[in-house]
Simulated assay, not measured.
Amino acid sequence: MIRIKTYKSILCILLSLTLFSCDSDNDSNPENNEQVSQDIMVTKEKLIGDWILVSSIIDNENVSPSAFECLKKSTATFNQDDTYEVTFLKLGSNSTNLCSRTVTQSGTYTVVGLNSVTFFNFDSEIKLIDDTLQITSKVTNDNEEQNQIDVFIRSDNSELGENQAEETEEVETDNQTDEDNNDDTFDGTEVIQNILGKWKIDSDKDCLQKNTIEFKSQSVFEFIQHKKNFNRRDLLDYNVSVSYPLPESIEATIIKGNSTVVFDTSAECQFIKTSTLEYVVKDEKTIALKNNPRVKFVLEDSTTIKLVHTFTDSDNNEQIREFIYKKL
C-alpha cells in the first residue's frame, strides 16, 4: 500500500510539473508576444493624433442642431508620450459667444491590446471602438438622468472629405461680417430695373445647372444652390448630428440664419440651399452682398451677370471663382 501511494504521489508531481512547463512555454511563446506587441503598435498608431466630435446621442436620439452647434467643436488629442486631452465646448451664458463654456479632461493612457486602451483621470467611460472614440457620460435633462454618447473620429477621416469651394462649387453666403457695404452715394435705380427677375447659371454640370438667382426687390434676392452629393463636413457645417459611419438614408431640413438647407440622399440633387440675401448697388456694374465682401455680382450686359466668389483654399491662399448667369 505504501508503494502504491508513493507511486501515485510521484505521478501527481510529474503531472503538475508537466502542466506548469506547458503554461510557462505558452507564456514565453515568441509568436504570442509578437502578436500582442503588434496589436499594441497598431492601436497606438490609430489613436495618436487629433479627433473631432461628429455625433452626439442622448438615449439613442441624435441631439438637436441647436445643441450640436457647440458640441461639434469638441476635440480630442492623443500624444506619443501616452498623454491625452479631451475638450468639450458647450453652450454658455454669454450671448456674444454662445460656445463659451469649456470642459477639459486630461491624463494618461495605456494601450493593452488591439483596440483596448486603459484611460486614467477621466470621469466618464471612454472606449476606442473600431475607427471611433466613444465617450459615455451622464447628463440630467428635466430632472431625469440620461446617457450621452459622444462619437469622435480622426480629423483625417475620409468621411469628412475636403469641403473647399473650389471642389464643391458652393458659394459661401453664410460668412457674414460687420463690414458695411451700404453706400448711398450711388443711385442704383437703373441697375436694379435691369437685374430684377430670375437668372439661371450657364452650366451643363449635373446639379450645378439648376442654380438660380432671383432679384425680387431693390435690396433682396433669392439664391438657390444645388449639389449632387454631400459629405460629413456639410452636415457638420449645418449642425446635423448623425451616426458613424454615415447612414445610407439621410433626410434633414436645417434653417441657419437666412438660409434653408435640405439634405436628402434619395434626391437627384442631395443638397439644396436656398438663401434670402440683401444686396447693395455699388456702381453701374457692381452689385455687392450686404455685409459679405466675399461675394459680388458684375453686370456684363442686360442678359448676363457674373457672380464672383472670393474664398480661402486649403493652403490658406485667396482664390476667386466666377460663375455666369443668364437672365430668363
Rank of each mutant, 00 (worst) to 15 (best):
A252C: 09
T274R: 11
I272W: 02
T102S: 12
T102F: 06
I195K: 00
S24K: 12
D23M: 12
I40P: 05
E172V: 12
Y244V: 13
I272V: 15
S302P: 05
A76H: 05
Q134M: 04
D180F: 01
K72N: 13
C22E: 07
K326A: 09
F230E: 02
S314M: 07
R233C: 08
T177Q: 01
F215S: 05
I10H: 08
K44C: 03
G197Q: 01
T77Y: 13
S137C: 02
T104E: 05
Q164K: 12
T110C: 12
V103F: 12
A67W: 07
L98P: 07
K72G: 09
K90A: 14
S155K: 12
N182Y: 12
N32H: 10
C12L: 14
D82G: 01
I52K: 10
C22I: 13
Q319T: 03
S100I: 05
S275M: 11
F68L: 02
T304M: 02
D25S: 11
S55I: 06
Q270T: 06
S241V: 06
I254G: 05
F152H: 01
S116P: 02
S266K: 09
N211F: 03
L196P: 00
N229C: 10
K227E: 15
I129Q: 15
F68D: 03
T260Q: 07
D237V: 00
H309N: 11
I272P: 00
Q164P: 10
G92K: 02
L71D: 06
N94Y: 14
D234M: 08
T108L: 02
T140G: 07
D50W: 04
A252F: 12
C269Q: 04
T189I: 03
A165M: 10
I126P: 02
T303E: 14
Y84W: 04
N97V: 14
N194E: 15
T265I: 02
L208Y: 09
L328P: 06
L246S: 03
W51T: 02
F88Y: 15
E166G: 09
S95G: 08
D187H: 01
E169G: 09
L89Q: 06
F88W: 11
P30W: 08
I153T: 03
L246Y: 03
L71N: 02
C12H: 11
G107R: 03
